[in-house]
């Protein structure tokens, strides 16, 4: 396992939000975490990134191990810069007052190797030619879809080992959504392991290898993505069939 989460409990103030969840992601996989509003999907991703309160939860107990290293010993910027884990946060959260190019540059903040940055930039602009055209534009003038691309591009720049994505399909037209998932698949094939949180279970299960179903802070089901898509409970609750 590349990432191994065991009996994780976290909470906001006195309220526990994850009641001991266990899951894992193997090297090279696309794993999806699906669940309804308020299930704790974003909470899980923010815990892995070790983001601080009040937006993110406080760690209570349990294990989070990445490549044999205990994530609770890392500060958030080190999770990113030393371990190579990146997060595409819910709602994009691009820096609207910076240009597109500056958004990418700040994502390369911790990188020293100029050649590596150039290589990544080339790869990013290869996947998102529209960002290259708009690189001198302030990021808040981008369309919603372009902002989502920028958010993914930024995560590609910071990381490489593993990418966490929090509802990347939100607010995208179907066409753009498929384009984005195509890109994610390509990123995955180039060697980045992906943990994908989605409310749109249909598309998530289509692209993922394995999946977990999260319900109010507990893992309810897990399994092969194709099997999950056939599961009666999943069909009823998340696929609307």
């Amino acid at each position: 396992m590349l990432l191994c989460v065991e009996d994780l409990r976290v909470g906001y103030g006195p309220i526990e939000a994850l009641h001991g969840i266990t899951f894992g992601v193997r090297e090279g996989e696309i794993v999806t975490l699906i669940g309804a509003n308020g299930a704790g999907k974003s909470t899980t991703l923010m815990s892995i990134m070790r983001l601080p309160p009040p937006e993110a939860p406080v760690y209570h107990s349990g294990k989070m191990i990445f490549e044999g290293r205990d994530l609770t010993q890392f500060s958030p910027h080190h999770v990113v810069s030393r371990l190579g884990i990146s997060l595409v946060p819910e709602g994009r959260r691009i820096f609207g007052n910076l240009t597109v190019w500056e958004n990418l540059k700040i994502a390369a903040y911790a990188h020293e190797d100029r050649q590596e940055i150039q290589k990544k930039t080339k790869r990013i602009f290869g996947l998102f030619p529209r960002l290259e055209e708009r690189r001198h534009q302030a990021a808040d003038t981008l369309s919603g879809g372009e902002q989502q691309m920028l958010s993914v591009a930024r995560a590609m720049m910071t990381g490489g080992r593993m990418m966490l994505l929090d509802e990347p399909s939100m607010g995208l037209a179907p066409f753009l959504m498929y384009e984005l998932f195509h890109v994610l698949k390509e990123i995955n094939q180039q060697g980045t392991t992906i943990l994908l949180v989605e409310q749109n279970a249909r598309i998530a299960l289509k692209y993922a290898h394995r999946g977990y179903v999260l319900e109010t802070g507990n893992i309810l089901l897990e399994g092969d993505a194709r099997e999950l898509a056939k599961d009666e409970k999943v069909k009823k609750a998340y696929l609307g069939e």
Binding site: A56, S75, H77, L87, L98, I106
Partner: peptide, 13 residues
């Protein structure tokens, strides 16, 4: 100044 929460995600201390 724009979004403090997203900054550590860029690897920035």
């Amino acid at each position: 100044s724009y979004d403090r929460m997203a900054v550590p995600l860029m690897g920035v201390p």
